[in-house]
Write a protein that binds this DNA or RNA. Structure first.
Ligand SMILES: [Mn+2]
Ligand SMILES: [Mn+2]
Ligand SMILES: [Mn+2]
Ligand SMILES: [Mn+2]
Lengths: 226, 226
DNA sequence: GGAAAGATTTAGTGTGACCTAAACTATTCT
DNA sequence: AGAATAGTTTAGGTCACACTAAATCTTTCC
């Protein structure tokens, strides 16, 4: 009846931290990930991050240069990708098989990713035909630990007037935002055209599948188009 | 990205403990559940159980008479049944939809039961047509917290020679045992007849769907027939 | 070059969950 | 009844993970 941890025994907070480091490493070009970035991302006090970071470094999952930041080791990267795979397979399964809305699956996956076995995740993936991306357009790592580096997507906010592109991916952490984007028709796979960009942080006017739409610049920064 | 507990915030060990108390209360006729029983069931030191029991009592989930044992309160019973529902729905889903063997789902469910939301469990149940029992024959509590009290099943070990019955339920915690029972054809719904019972804890000889089989007495004690 | 600002780590607390060993209670047996 | 036994709780320790407050390090800016 006792619930043993599922694998080589990483805790849920440790897995979430590795995932966050992975993500921040990817977005920040090659720079080490700072304590503050992590604290903000994980919604923790900076001191708590330092503690977690020490434990992860002891386990050889990250390299920590005090005051300088943190970098995943090879084994840390593998662990991060395993968690990411679980998360994204679960999200996809919840949407495609169980009928969840795309705005509700992130939180559920955030918990289940730490409890599901590899076998469960593999069975879910197989029953979906081993999808390449999750419902928000993020690539799903393979069982073997590979990940398709998404082909050059830019934030919608950076497109010039008149440029078009296909929505490749949207940030998935905020349910309200996702619901709003869906209501505008801004979902992965849809073609958008930037009609006009107001200066000084003004709204971006779009044509989404023919319909004219206006969105704010910070939202436009979180929609990636290819 | 942070993983908050899913509900009114019971921890996984607390949920497992409540489940164990529920189960022991049901099998031990009306008597209070002792620390030792719980320790054995949960595979913990007795002192650890005392600690857990204190916390649960503080939360009003159990009544604890020191040195005398423990009893679920109404709210503790509700919490136990909610966890039990999750566990059994998940087991059933894993077997029926994802093709897991019935011997492999218990451990998986033991973890997932603490991470899955009510909505997820309800969707799983709905997609199965709200089944009444799990793959091992145990009744699945309803969303509303009711549970069908299984109609008078007796251990196979207690049947007299010549008696027949239908397997109603088997203990699900030991994977090896489940595999063995399946190999004998002893699964819920199958008719068995006791041909002969050797005295002094000797083997029970059965006829399972026509085929003669021999099983040991302690195994026979864990197969319930109706 | 030095001070201020900002980021990071250390120090000290608290909680839940485990453990072992010691103290205590209840029951059972002479 | 009194003593042994079995069961239970208390005492004291550890670990992960959070927090706040206080030090400390780095960077930036005059
Ligand atoms: Mn997500
Ligand atoms: Mn998570
Ligand atoms: Mn089970
Ligand atoms: Mn459990």
């Amino acid at each position: 009846m006792t619930a043993l941890p599922v694998q080589g025994a990483l805790t849920a907070p440790a897995e979430d931290c590795l995932k966050a480091i992975y993500d921040l490493e990817r977005s920040g070009q090659g720079a080490a990930v700072t304590t503050n970035d992590l604290a903000h991302r994980l919604d923790l006090a900076a001191a708590s991050v330092t503690g977690m970071v020490k434990r992860l470094a002891d386990q050889g999952l990250i390299d920590h240069a005090p005051y300088r930041g943190v970098r995943l080791t090879e084994s840390g990267r593998r662990a991060a990708l395993r968690t990411l795979r679980r998360h994204r397979v679960i999200e996809t399964y919840l949407v495609q098989v169980l009928g969840f809305g795309w705005d509700r699956v992130h939180d559920e996956a955030e918990r289940l990713e730490h409890a599901a076995s590899d076998e469960l995740v593999d069975r879910m993936a197989a029953s979906l035909g081993d999808p390449a991306t999750d419902p928000h357009g993020a690539p799903i790592p393979t069982r073997e630990g590979g990940i398709a580096e998404l082909p050059a997507a830019r934030p919608l906010a950076e497109l010039a007037e008149g440029e078009r592109g296909v929505v490749a991916r949207v940030e998935d952490e905020d349910a309200d935002r996702l619901r709003y984007l869906a209501s505008l028709g801004v979902v992965p796979g849809v073609e958008v055209e930037v009609v006009e960009r107001a200066p000084f942080g003004g709204p971006v006017s779009l044509r989404v599948a023919g319909t004219p739409r206006l969105i704010g610049p910070q939202l436009a920064a979180q929609v990636m188009v290819a």
